[in-house]
Nucleic acid binder design. Structure first.
Length: 261
DNA sequence: AGTACCACCTGACGGC
DNA sequence: TGCCGTCAGGTGGTAC
C-alpha cells in the first residue's frame, strides 16, 4: 500500500491533527519497530515537545519536533498512520502511539512490521544517508531525462529504484507506465523526447491525483489501471485486456494494446 | 550497473 | 479442519 501517495495522505493527516500539540506520552509496544533508536531517545525527542512541521521524501515521513529532532516513519508494505479520538479503539497491529494533549492520538498500525520508527538529528542528513533520489513530485523534467539516459535497464525497475527517484513502488510504477503508454520493459535510456515528456507529466499527474483522492483504489478514476490489477481484466481504456507478468520478482500489470513494446 | 533470488514478517486464499 | 504452496503494494543483502 504505502507508496508516495499513501505517505502523502499520512503526512497531511499528521499535519492536520498533531501539529502544535504537546505529546503527552509515547508507546512502542514492539521495540523491534525502532530503527537505530532507543525507547529512551524516542521519548526524549517527543515527550513534552510539540510537532512543529512535517515533510515527506519519497516514502519516508518526517516530523520536526520543538526539541529540534526529527521523528521518522516508514510504512513498509502494510503500515498506515491513523488519528484516533479518545475512546476509539486502536487497530490490531498497533506498533506505535503518540498520545496528544487533547486526548486524541496518532497511531502507526503495521501488520507485517516491515516499517519502522526512528529519531534523527537532521532531516537533510537523514535523506542523504538513506541514498534517496529526488522525490518523485519534486523531480523536474531535465532531472528525469538525465537520470533515465544514464540507465541501462528497463523503465519499470528504474522508476522503482529509490536511489534514482524516491516514492514510486510497484503499483504506481504500473499506473504511470499505463498512462504514459509505455511497456514496463521499455529501455529507460532509449526514450525519445516525446515519451520522456509524457512520462514526466504522467508521473506528476498520477501521484498528485492519487494523493488528492486519499490513495484509495475506490476513489481513483475508473479509467485507471489500479482498480483493474487482475490478469485478464478488461482494459479500462480500450479493447485490450490486462496482463500480469513477473518483473524483478513482483507482479507487473499492463495492457498490451495501450502499452506496445 | 542491473537483475535474480532470498530474507525479513504476517496473514489471506485456494487446492487437496 | 488442517496442511501446503502462493501471493502481497517495501527494503536490503548476496551472488552472478
Amino acid at each position: 500500500m504505502p507508496e508516495l501517495p499513501d505517505v502523502e495522505v499520512f503526512r497531511r493527516r499528521l499535519a492536520a491533527t498533531a501539529l502544535g500539540q504537546p505529546v503527552r506520552r509515547v508507546e512502542v509496544p514492539d521495540e523491534t519497530m525502532l530503527r537505530d533508536t532507543s525507547r529512551q531517545r524516542l521519548g526524549r525527542a517527543l515527550k513534552g515537545n510539540v510537532l512543529v512541521g512535517t515533510r515527506r521524501h519519497g516514502k519516508h515521513l518526517l516530523a520536526e519536533t520543538s526539541g529540534g529532532g526529527w521523528l521518522v516513519l516508514h510504512f513498509g508494505m502494510t503500515g498506515r498512520l491513523l488519528h484516533l479520538q479518545d475512546g476509539e479503539p486502536s487497530p490490531d497491529h498497533t506498533r506505535a502511539v503518540l498520545h496528544l494533549a487533547d486526548g486524541s492520538r496518532v497511531v502507526l498500525d503495521d501488520q507485517r512490521r516491515l516499517g519502522f520508527v526512528a529519531v534523527v538529528d537532521d532531516d537533510e542528513a537523514y535523506v542523504s544517508a538513506q541514498d534517496l533520489g529526488e522525490d518523485a513530485l519534486r523531480l523536474s523534467y531535465p532531472q528525469l531525462r538525465d537520470l533515465l539516459r544514464g540507465r541501462r535497464g528497463a523503465l519499470k525497475p528504474a522508476l522503482m529504484d529509490q536511489s534514482v527517484i524516491a516514492g514510486i513502488g510497484n503499483v504506481y510504477s504500473d499506473e504511470i507506465l499505463f498512462h504514459a503508454r509505455l511497456h514496463p520493459r521499455t529501455s529507460a535510456a532509449g526514450l525519445d523526447e516525446t515519451s520522456l515528456r509524457r512520462l514526466h507529466r504522467q508521473t506528476r499527474r498520477v501521484l498528485r491525483t492519487a494523493a488528492d483522492r486519499g490513495a484509495d483504489p475506490e476513489r481513483v478514476p475508473r479509467t485507471w489501471l489500479l482498480p483493474h490489477r487482475e490478469d485478464g481484466a478488461a482494459c479500462p481504456r480500450g479493447d485490450g485486456s490486462v496482463r500480469r507478468f513477473k518483473m524483478s520478482g513482483r507482479g507487473a500489470f499492463y495492457c498490451p494494446l495501450c502499452q506496445p513494446g
